[in-house]
Amino acid sequence: MTDQAYNPNNSCYRHPDRQSFVLCQRCGRTICPECQTPAAVGVHCPECVREQRAQFAANRRASGAPNGFTVARRRFAMLDQKATVVIVAITVAVWLLDQVSGRLFSSLLAFNSLLLPTQPWRAVTVLFVHSSFLHLLFNMWALWIFGRMLENMLGAWRFLALYFVTGIFGSMLVTFLAPGTSVVGASGAIFGLFAAFFVLQRSLGQNAVQLLVIIGLNLVIGFLPGTNISWQAHIGGLIGGFLMGFVFAQTRNIRQRPLQITLIAATAIVGLGLTAVGYASTIG
């Protein structure tokens, strides 16, 4: 077992001689008690606090008359989980449009491995379409809970990378294990969030047994007869989530940012490459 007391990543980024296991909920830097500013969720580092204040001041200066659009833009700028909010809003909007258009969006965005050569974007757009209201409700509820926590820990862009890369891994395993099957839903990415959150919690020395139980129960449900659930996408998302979580856990240090970006891109390329291999093997 690694001795965390000698891990430089567990030292305050502003005071290297002070050990701490607390991360800024926005950028992920390790911060000591002196550098912590309480936030709605967790704590923020001095740089993130200054950035928020400067952004808020800039929004106030540029806002002009407080009309409805200005107020909405100001409130959105102050959100700490913009990416999660946007994904949920787009997914709900697509579902509503799908209902009034006679499932047009499902036919355009659903994933089927046979369409990969001509419509490869379906490996990602599948995350935005759902088969029923309950399907949408469960996935968006899970995204709202775990997405906001992960976005606070990772930041918006790393969270978006996690969401879409794990979604690709879900489509990848569907290509291998259920070729020619049409699937919809964000479940692959949701399971990816579960896995990544588990890895990050364990890397911080926190108990994640309850989360492991949740993952297991939801995974078992997908194998029950008559549920019509793509368990292949769930397992693929878990694989992608564990990989991405490991990348984030091992590259926490701010100086490792170039390495982190490289590994994220490499993981995405692996997911896309395996999807192509899966397609070639099923038609060949």
Rank of each mutant, 00 (worst) to 15 (best):
S230I: 03
V165A: 12
M244L: 15
W141T: 15
A189M: 08
P258Q: 03
I254C: 00
V247P: 10
T175N: 00
V199I: 14
L217C: 13
G222K: 02
L160Y: 03
H234I: 11
V183Y: 06
P225F: 13
F191N: 05
F197D: 01
R158L: 08
G170S: 10
M153Y: 07
S230P: 09
L160V: 13
V247L: 12
G226K: 02
N218P: 01
L150R: 05
M140Q: 15
G245Q: 09
G155H: 06
V209L: 13
Y163H: 12
P225E: 11
Q210T: 02
S171Q: 07
V213A: 14
N228G: 02
L224K: 02
R202Y: 10
I168T: 12
T166H: 06
A161R: 01
V213I: 15
S230F: 05
Q232G: 05
V165S: 11
H130R: 00
T227V: 12
S230M: 07
A178L: 12
F248Q: 07
N207Q: 09
L143R: 09
F191I: 04
L154E: 05
R158E: 07
S187F: 08
Q201G: 15
G205S: 07
L127C: 03
I261L: 13
F128C: 07
I221W: 05
L212A: 15
G185S: 07
G167Q: 01
L160E: 02
W157P: 00
G185Y: 02
L238C: 00
G155P: 07
I214D: 04
V165W: 05
I235W: 09
W141Q: 02
M140S: 12
M140L: 12
